[in-house]
Nucleic acid binder design. Sequence first.
DNA 1: GCTCGAAATGAAAGCGCTTGCACGCAGGGT
DNA 2: ACCCTGCGTGCAAGCGCTTTCATTTCGAGC
Lengths: 345, 345
Amino acid sequence: MPRSNPNPRLEDVARAAGVSLATASRALSEPGMVRADTRGRVEQAAAMLGYVPHGAARALATSRTRTIGAVFPPVDNPIFAGATHALAQELAAAGYTMLLASYDYDLDDELAAVRALVGRGADGMVVVGLDHRPETLAVLERAGVPWEITWSLDESGRHHCIGFSHRGASIRVAQHLLDLGHREIAVIAGDTKRNDRARERLAGVKDALAARGVKLPPKRVIEVDFSVANGRAGFAKLLERAPGFTAVIGGNDPLAIGALFECRDRGIDVPGQMSIAGFDDIELAGELAPGLTTVRVPSAEIGREAGRRLLARLAGKAVPRIKEMPAPLVVRGTTGPPPKKGRLK
Amino acid sequence: MPRSNPNPRLEDVARAAGVSLATASRALSEPGMVRADTRGRVEQAAAMLGYVPHGAARALATSRTRTIGAVFPPVDNPIFAGATHALAQELAAAGYTMLLASYDYDLDDELAAVRALVGRGADGMVVVGLDHRPETLAVLERAGVPWEITWSLDESGRHHCIGFSHRGASIRVAQHLLDLGHREIAVIAGDTKRNDRARERLAGVKDALAARGVKLPPKRVIEVDFSVANGRAGFAKLLERAPGFTAVIGGNDPLAIGALFECRDRGIDVPGQMSIAGFDDIELAGELAPGLTTVRVPSAEIGREAGRRLLARLAGKAVPRIKEMPAPLVVRGTTGPPPKKGRLK
DNA sequence: GCTCGAAATGAAAGCGCTTGCACGCAGGGT
DNA sequence: ACCCTGCGTGCAAGCGCTTTCATTTCGAGC
């Protein structure tokens, strides 16, 4: 069938309603400026023709796209997936759409993504963490695109951000283990080079231990990419390299769960012989038996709130620069006092 | 600091290069039409000014946005997260950007999302599964936006699609259990009302059992939303409602894992007393002990390939309407022969 | 019924880019 | 020497909408 009316334009609506282009435009986007009956006619005409405003044209005229860019590390990390989902929903509710780009922790890719999204006219941008190429924020700055940093808190106070102190949360985890009596602690950290969250989490552990005069020898720290498999492998390696620890902290839950599984396979009792703590509180953490002691990261809330803040700022409202989210320690079954006597092995 | 040059326009580039607007445009987007030295001057000028093409203007002039819409069920399901990540990467590599909307299995929301993305000028659209409001595809049709159905295969041959037969894969799972000797089988299915994948998976089990003369009483089937917690609860309910089964099939891996955990908590030996199979092969499935028997769903490949196909079609290339992906059964430790004598409980 | 100010409407100028068409110029055939 | 071809370039007309400014209409007050 030949498409008889290839997408009606506003002009068609105006003609059908017997008003001018300008009036039709106002009737649809600024209802208050038009008399009720006129508006009615326009709306009716629009409905009848199945009129859909042309986004690009509107964007060109207003230099607003009603689109928000989001640049995330691999969305297949459940923690980010939840956040993007919540963000998308929040934006959709306000008539905005999310432009999503994801990068594999490569900051040059992130920069490229930000450039692309700015070129697409994103009205605002959500980025993750504090580690970026210097140009990344400069591009946003120059283009006049407001951005929101998520997950981490920017101490300098220069940027709008929403998140929590990874160091602080990590300190709580370490203190919990210290309070239980652990003195020999190991860490399976994420990649601290490209990722301020992993770096801060590791630093938190170091701080907490140092504050109580407990050492964290380099051999007791291993860095891997986030995954269950790497958690297993990392734990095995720690055991081989520097045995004798009674507790291990995972840089995130999948890593901790990997360690847990490895213990199970090796017949190491958790928490009898080995305590394990994670970070993020993914769904699984609470379903395991024993449940994983971890830090609850409100990822969906962060996504939702980041969207809200950005929209508020675009609407000209003032928004506190820093929004700290709670990240409480959730104590479950994988942590307990260290074995009474002797050490593992 | 005052923004001295608020975003250079193509005109500025042209002036700097000493050519006309038209030539500058061609130099940047159709290199072949311009003499090498001219092109060089333009490129240099563009680089010097930090010129970024204005997406909306280009879109208006070409009626192409280099943007692909993706409308997914909750991206926090790891299986979809992997697919969107792969899709985004594939598109980015070709200079396209992904507009992502997600909906909570509510088809009206899906329709609204598709409308929004079409309004934003998406050049193509990726949708999931076969269940849609009739208007959804009509909107795409009318707007002339090509779409790709993922996950499911459209038997009617009317739509471009990439996925696999959920029924077929499900049959393989059921046959595997039948071959092991199971005759009393239960199913924790997803919501079959709003979701053709869940429906087909359940139908596959029914078909396979029926083909061998095995009954699947309604009491042995329970429908829940996808999650580990619901898998647990569902399993518990089945046990209460219709005990005596020796195997349970989860509508996806989280459900199966929930059942597995519930068994563990109740001291039911897997696979000694109870066999469990899932669907999707998420990372965790292989890391559990015993490993979960499941169907490997190539979700990242589906995302990547959907992107490729759409881009190829936009480039005018012919693409086979249907692309079937492999979805092999992966047998691990959670399935084994039914207990020799007597039944559970 | 008339005047005046406010409210509603219309005409038209862009927003930044692409692209059909026209034009100028170099080179090859006759 | 001439015309024709064809490449490389420039001119200018949009793409579909918003928005300023001018104009018309309306309603209230006298």
